[in-house]
């Protein structure tokens, strides 16, 4: 089993079928996914809505179990959620009764860090994500962008092996979104984490990813993986960027059409 695993994350023949309500049969969400995510890479998964991107992330996070195949982290089979995989949700999923500081400290406390040390570490990530001055605020008092910073600081404080980001900026307005993409690149570069990032935005995927995987319409498979070798921060108006964008767009369009015919 471990012999076959090569990446930080190794996905082998992964299949997920959701049983239909009451009936036999079911919906095949993912079918035969093989994928390796290398240490330190920023891997973007790009696909039309309903293609099973989030299903794949949920399996990597351990929230969902595959119907067939397996997903490995450092050669160990993923079976349950754990602090080695930090998830950033589109809906933030902050604890509304806890202050920013307590939200960021949450994972540290749960994994047995003594309070003074947890506070120290939390302060460090609060500073890194630009949240200084908001330590005592409650999540609902913050804007969407600020909430997503808290969500990011919360998982980074736990020093996970990998970050799993599920369309984290999809609910933000266009300006905030651009700002957050830039901030994310800076933060990830400074902490050097492996990222698995899900998005339906071609621009976002090519702006962020070192590799961009394009998924097929349901059942979800990996259609093609594009290498993006442009240096950060990328110039979205450059011809190289647009060439990649054109290629991705063509691949996606085929899938959107295919989904339309279904």
């Amino acid at each position: 089993m471990t012999g076959a695993a090569s990446g930080k994350i190794a996905i082998r023949g992964l299949r997920k079928v959701f049983a239909d309500r009451g009936g036999r049969g079911g919906t095949v969400a993912l079918d035969g996914i093989d994928l390796d995510v290398q240490e330190g890479e920023f891997f973007c998964l790009l696909g039309p809505s309903g293609c099973g991107k989030t299903t794949l992330l949920n399996i990597l996070a351990g929230f969902d179990q595959p119907t067939g195949g397996e997903a490995l982290l450092d050669g160990r089979r993923i079976s349950a959620p754990g602090p080695d995989r930090g998830v950033v949700f589109q809906e933030y999923a902050l604890f509304p009764w806890l202050s920013v500081m307590d939200n960021v400290m949450f994972g540290l406390i749960e994994t047995g860090t003594p309070r003074p040390k947890a506070r120290e570490t939390a302060e460090q990530y609060i500073a890194l994500t630009g949240l200084r001055g908001f330590e005592k605020s409650l999540p609902h008092q913050l804007s969407g962008g600020m909430r997503q910073r808290v969500s990011l600081a919360r998982v980074l404080a736990n020093s996970p092996e990998i970050l799993l980001l599920d369309e984290p900026f999809a609910a933000l307005d266009a300006q905030t979104r651009l700002l957050m993409q830039r901030e994310l690149i800076k933060i990830i570069q400074s902490v050097g984490k492996t990222c698995f990032f899900i998005t339906h935005s071609i621009d976002e995927a090519i702006f962020l990813g070192t590799r961009v995987a394009i998924m097929t319409a349901r059942p979800g498979r990996i259609k093609k993986i594009l290498e993006v070798t442009l240096p950060y921060l990328r110039d979205v108006t450059s011809s190289e960027f647009n060439a990649l964008k054109r290629e991705a767009l063509k691949l996606i369009e085929e899938e959107v059409e295919a989904a339309g015919r279904q």
């Binding site: 996070a61 929230f63 959620p81 754990g82 602090p83 998830v87 949700f89 902050l94 998982v155 736990n158």
Partner: peptide
Amino acid sequence: LIRASQMLG
């Protein structure tokens, strides 16, 4: 929120 707490440990 349950999922968030689980993934935080």
